[in-house]
Design a protein around this nucleic acid. Structure first.
Length: 434
DNA sequence: TTTTGAGTTGTTCGA
DNA sequence: GTCGAACAACTCAAA
């Protein structure tokens, strides 16, 4: 019986420029590609979560691409720790190849699988694909991980060569895929337990050269399409970060910096997995949050009486997306005006954002609250009115999402800017100096 | 070891 | 309207 290689797709839904797949195709044996709808992850999602639709659509697309080669993507539903060893038996697998995932849950899951396979003499091999530089590749001279972005980014850029961004030519080797006689049908959303998902248009994955070129001058204005909206594609690997970085390097330094921020937070979550749940700077976990439920509800619904904050939250609720500049404003408002725990906001974003990425989300929220590595100083508090004046002066964005603005039905501000920000600075100061 | 310079995207005040 | 300094003062990186 022939030996086969298992390639397990996780957050890399593409055939082209896929490092792990390339590695698998270069191995001795035929490659069996699989995807698993992880029942542990799916159990956390709500019935109408639109990310499941995105995943399902993209898996369907990927499956067709495999079928065009004469192969097929085998799709499973269950717990990978149980399924992978079973699949290995079914297909006589000698080696399992994956692209590495740096999140705490994924690391734990992969370690468990590694141990199970080791007992059966099956190799479990990882590849770097999700980021440009990972783990220990960009560290301080003493070998320890950076916790400040700017020196990290300097070393990242100094280390970068063309070879780091080269596309892996997996499409040329697809003849090493295992050929299946009969095509397998794809499990439906209903069978996965999702019955109420509304259809939605997801952001396109074409990289707009003009947008990247003008990114640094246009990204701050929520009324225009100045940001790429590629987050969801980077999250699930429907585009290659290397391809994007090649464009960024050529076209726009600020855009490249954003990709480095992504690498930075992936590196941070790998070295500091607790930072997804706890303040990076421990003293910040002693801040006596106000955590007013009514304030939180008003923030979630976009009814704070601060038009830029409300527009952002309503954009999020309606579309699963929020403009980057506005994300900072609403995060600063929640933590520093309402004095609500950053985890409440991070959890809400985790539920709503189509492009939700654990590492970036925790990093961003901790940046806003001041508790993170290389965060904004605690006394730096966004003024929502000034941000509106600077970045949406004509109120195009605000009127798009808050049509009743300026009428009697628009709420009065739930808190007053000057008094709440003074209170927050005093409380932070007292807590941090205690 | 000590010292020095620097730190994502800000705000406010007063000249 | 514009500009620079103060905000408060800590931690990190690197020489």
């Amino acid at each position: 019986m022939e030996n086969n290689i298992l390639f397990w797709h996780r957050r890399d839904f593409r055939l082209e420029d896929n490092h792990g797949l390339y590695k698998a195709l270069n191995s001795d044996g035929k490659v069996v590609p699989i995807f698993i709808f992880d029942s542990t992850i799916l159990a956390r999602l709500k019935q109408d979560d639109q990310r499941i639709l995105f995943i399902h659509q993209e898996i369907e697309r990927l499956k067709k691409e495999y079928q065009n080669t004469g192969s097929d993507l085998m799709v499973y539903f269950g717990n990978p720790v149980e399924l992978i060893p079973q699949i290995c038996v079914e297909f006589n697998i000698q080696k399992v190849v994956v692209n590495r995932d740096y999140e705490p849950y994924a690391l734990q899951r992969d370690t468990a699988i590694f141990e199970l396979l080791k007992d059966k003499n099956i190799d479990f091999v990882g590849a770097k694909d999700h980021v440009v530089f990972e783990k220990q590749e960009v560290v301080k001279d003493d070998g320890k991980p950076y916790t400040v972005f700017t020196p990290y980014s300097r070393k990242w850029k100094a280390r970068l060569t063309d070879a780091d961004l080269v596309a892996f030519p997996s499409e040329k080797q697809l003849n090493n895929l295992k050929i299946f006689g009969e095509k397998q049908s794809l499990i439906s959303l209903q069978e996965l337990g999702f019955t109420d998902v509304k259809t939605v248009d997801f952001p396109g994955k074409l990289v707009n050269k003009t947008l990247v070129t003008k990114y640094s001058e246009q990204r701050d204005f929520p009324a225009i399409t100045g940001t790429s909206r590629l987050g969801v594609h980077l999250r699930f690997g429907t585009i290659s970060v290397r391809a994007l970085a090649r464009q960024a390097k050529e076209l726009n330094e600020t855009f490249l910096n954003e990709l480095i921020w992504r690498d930075f937070y992936q590196m941070i979550i790998f070295h500091f997995p607790l930072s997804a749940q706890h303040s990076f700077k421990p003293t910040y976990d002693r801040i006596p949050w106000d955590n007013n439920e009514l304030h939180f509800k008003a923030w979630c619904e976009g009814k704070t009486g601060y038009p830029l904050v409300d527009a952002g939250m309503r954009e999020l609720n309606a579309t699963g997306h929020m403009h980057n500049r506005v994300r900072m404003v609403v995060a600063s408002f929640l933590t520093k005006h309402l004095l609500i725990d950053w985890r409440w906001g991070a959890t809400y974003f985790a539920e709503k954002l189509l492009d939700f990425e654990l590492a970036s989300n925790a990093g961003g929220w901790q940046w806003a609250s001041g508790s993170g590595c290389d965060a904004a100083p605690y006394f730096r508090i966004f003024n929502p009115a000034l941000q509106l004046d600077k970045f949406d002066k004509q109120m195009v964005y605000v009127k798009r999402w808050v049509p009743e603005f300026g009428t009697n039905s628009y709420p009065q501000p739930i808190v007053e800017h000057a008094t709440t920000t003074k209170r927050t600075i005093a409380i932070y100061k007292e807590t941090l100096n205690a």
